[in-house]
C-alpha cells in the first residue's frame, strides 16, 4: 500500500505542478510541453486506479494527436514569448473571461461531484461493478449495447466538427495548375515524345 501511495503522490504532484506551469510559464512552447507532461501524468494516474483503457486512450488521443497539433500551431505562429502575463507587466484583458469560465467549471464540478457523493440515486444508470473482468472488456460490454445511441451521437458531433472545419478553410483557387495522377501514370512515349526532322536554318516551333 505504501508503494501505491508513493506512486500516487509522485504522479499527482507532477500533474499539479505541470498544470500550474502551463498557465504561468512565459514561453508558449514550454506551456505546451508542460501540458503534455500533465496529460502523461494524468494517464499514469488513470492506470493506477485500474482504468488502463482510459489511460492509454488519453495517451493516444491527447498526447499523440491533440498536443501535436497544439505544438504545431504554437511553433508555426512563432509566439515564442508571451508579452503580457497576468502577473507581469501590462494587464491582460483575458482575465475576466477566464475567471467567469473557470468559476462556472468549478460550480459544475461542485454540483456534480457533490450530488454524486451525497445522493444515492442521482445517476440514472447503474455503475459498472468492479469484478474479475478487465476494464476494457467492461467498457466494450456497455458501449455498443446500452450506450450505442450516445456513442453514435458523439461520433456524429465529431464528424460535423470535421466537416465544418473543412468547409470553413476550403477555398477554391483559380488559376492553379493541378496534377492529375491518372494522366501522369497513363503517359506513354508515343503521345509524349515526338521526333521531328529539322531542316537546317529553319528551326522548330515548339508549342507549349
Amino acid at each position: 500500500m505504501i508503494v501505491h501511495s508513493i506512486f500516487f503522490y509522485f504522479f499527482s504532484v507532477i500533474a499539479i505542478f505541470s498544470s500550474l506551469m502551463v498557465i504561468t510559464s512565459r514561453s508558449t512552447i514550454n506551456s505546451v510541453f508542460f501540458l503534455i507532461l500533465d496529460f502523461i501524468s494524468v494517464g499514469c494516474l488513470f492506470i493506477m486506479v485500474g482504468a488502463e483503457f482510459l489511460g492509454m486512450i488519453l495517451l493516444i488521443v491527447y498526447v499523440g494527436a491533440v498536443a501535436v497539433l497544439f505544438l504545431f500551431v504554437v511553433m508555426m505562429l512563432n509566439v515564442a514569448e508571451q508579452k503580457q502575463s497576468w502577473f507581469i507587466g501590462k494587464k491582460s484583458t483575458h482575465i475576466p473571461t477566464g475567471l467567469i469560465v473557470s468559476v462556472l467549471i468549478l460550480l459544475e464540478l461542485l454540483v456534480v461531484v457533490g450530488g454524486w457523493k451525497y445522493k444515492e440515486d442521482l445517476m440514472s444508470s447503474s455503475t459498472l461493478l468492479l469484478s474479475e473482468i478487465s476494464n476494457t472488456h467492461q467498457l466494450g460490454l456497455v458501449m455498443y449495447t446500452d450506450y450505442i445511441l450516445y456513442f453514435q451521437l458523439a461520433g456524429i458531433v465529431l464528424l460535423l466538427a470535421m466537416i465544418g472545419a473543412i468547409l470553413l478553410t476550403f477555398r477554391e483557387r483559380v488559376g492553379v495548375k493541378k496534377q492529375s495522377y491518372l494522366n501522369q501514370i497513363s503517359r506513354s512515349p508515343s503521345n509524349a515524345v515526338e521526333l521531328i526532322e529539322v531542316k537546317s536554318n529553319q528551326g522548330v516551333k515548339v508549342d507549349d
Binding site: 492509454m56 495517451l59 493516444i60 498526447v63 499523440g64
Partner: peptide, 18 residues
C-alpha cells in the same frame, strides 16, 4: 504482460513524433 499491450505499443509509437 499487460491487458492493453497493443494499445500501449500504439500509444508509445504515437509519442515518437515528439
Amino acid at each position: 504482460n499487460i491487458n492493453v499491450g497493443i494499445l500501449y505499443l500504439f500509444a508509445i509509437s504515437s509519442l515518437g513524433v515528439y
